[in-house]
Amino acid sequence: MRPFSLRHAMLPLLAALLLSACHGKDEAAQPGGSTPETALQASVDLLKAGDFNGLWKHALPSADYANLRADWSHHQQDPRPITAEDRARFNETMQKLTEPDAETKLYAELQPKLASMQQQYKDQLPVLISVGEALVKSGVSQSKTLSDAQKTQASNMIDVLAPWAQKTPWFDQVKAKQAVGVAVTTARKLDLKSPEQLRTMDFDTSMGKYSTGYAGLKQLLAIYGLSVDDALNSIKLTPVSSSNGHAVVRVDYTLLGKPLSTESKLVQQDGRWYSEDMLDNARKAHLQASQQPETPAGNASSAVTKD
């Protein structure tokens, strides 16, 4: 009787696991989360997958997501004209990255430069990175858009990333060759034809390009020892408080072997939970976009000036 009893005792557990898995997929497919923790976890999962369209769709109420899509052309506008020099530089860069046998050609061009740079900057690089660290920290502390909690979190991350950057073998020939391969593959997948394209892509196209670029960036960082997925996989969420439609969740994670933590504030709307910061930023961006005048066809973003 034991095998039969054990099998039947496992059925409720298996059913619970299956329901939990289905519920997790359902959370990611809906705006917000049924709890503060599921809202955050679904966002983490979508970020890990590089699904930026899905991330925005999940992280914002339906009306705010619709506004984001409708406002996208305003967010893409740049009053600075594209010059002939800009276009020439863009075309040259993309040609080098996408032409046949680009990996071999670029690495052959880079290899002697790496040896020279290693000889010239090997001892100076840690000092330069320290100076950069101080400048970035100063910028964070003086930011008018970051909250005190966000400033603290950014500073803690810089404290972890700076020593990694100082010790990373940036001039290593093998790693550089791998990095060139990733850059070429990513550029080909992006398939960018002109600088104007960067300013005229619709929301869905932009999110697709972001996903491609993000995947390439993660591969590049992994080559030099920084795994974004490892950091995302290490995230643990712990509820801190919840009352009157507001909640706080503690977020613990590991970055480059160092434990870090922060707190995320969430707000409940129509029975679903959303990141308070993301929602506030999205609504401020929508208000700003709605106050901008419509730009007529043939605007400055597509103009060309001659030097």
Rank of each mutant, 00 (worst) to 15 (best):
I158M: 13
D71P: 06
Q76T: 10
G257F: 01
A63T: 05
Q166R: 04
A84F: 12
D71N: 03
S116R: 11
D202F: 13
G245H: 05
D172P: 00
F52E: 02
L192D: 12
Q124P: 04
H8M: 12
V160Q: 05
V180S: 00
L55S: 11
I235G: 00
Q77V: 15
V136F: 13
L14M: 14
G32N: 02
I235E: 09
D86Q: 03
V248R: 07
Q120R: 08
M117S: 08
K236M: 01
K57P: 01
D71H: 13
G257M: 13
S234M: 14
A63Y: 07
T98G: 15
G132T: 04
L161N: 13
A70K: 09
G33R: 01
T186G: 12
G213L: 12
M201G: 09
D148G: 01
T152N: 10
V304H: 05
D191P: 07
S243Y: 08
L260D: 03
G54A: 01
K144T: 06
F203Y: 14
L198D: 13
D51I: 06
Q269E: 10
V248A: 08
K25I: 09
N91D: 10
W56T: 05
D191M: 05
G139L: 10
Q120S: 11
V131Q: 09
W273I: 10
V136Y: 07
S34K: 03
G213I: 01
V240Q: 12
D229T: 06
A183W: 09
A66C: 02
E99I: 06
L217T: 15
E263W: 00
Q124N: 04
W170F: 14
A134F: 07
Y65K: 05
D123W: 11
E103I: 10
E92K: 11
N53H: 03
K144I: 15
T38D: 10
T200W: 09
S62L: 04
S147A: 14
A162L: 03
P239D: 01
T200M: 12
K209N: 04
K284A: 03
D101N: 15
P61G: 04
V127F: 05
D26F: 07
D191C: 10
L13V: 00
S116L: 14
L128V: 03
A21G: 10
V228K: 00
L46H: 06
P126N: 11
T305H: 10
D270N: 12
L146Q: 13
H75W: 09
V228H: 04
G54L: 00
R80M: 01
W170E: 03
K57L: 12
A59G: 02
T83E: 02
K209E: 05
S143M: 13
H246V: 11
L18N: 07
H8V: 14
Y65T: 12
Q124T: 05
V249H: 08
S130M: 11
L14I: 14
W164M: 12
K236T: 04
S5M: 15
Q119E: 12
A9I: 02
T152S: 14
D252E: 08
S243K: 13
P61V: 06
L55D: 09
L232R: 00
A59Q: 02
L220Y: 04
L6M: 15
G139Y: 07
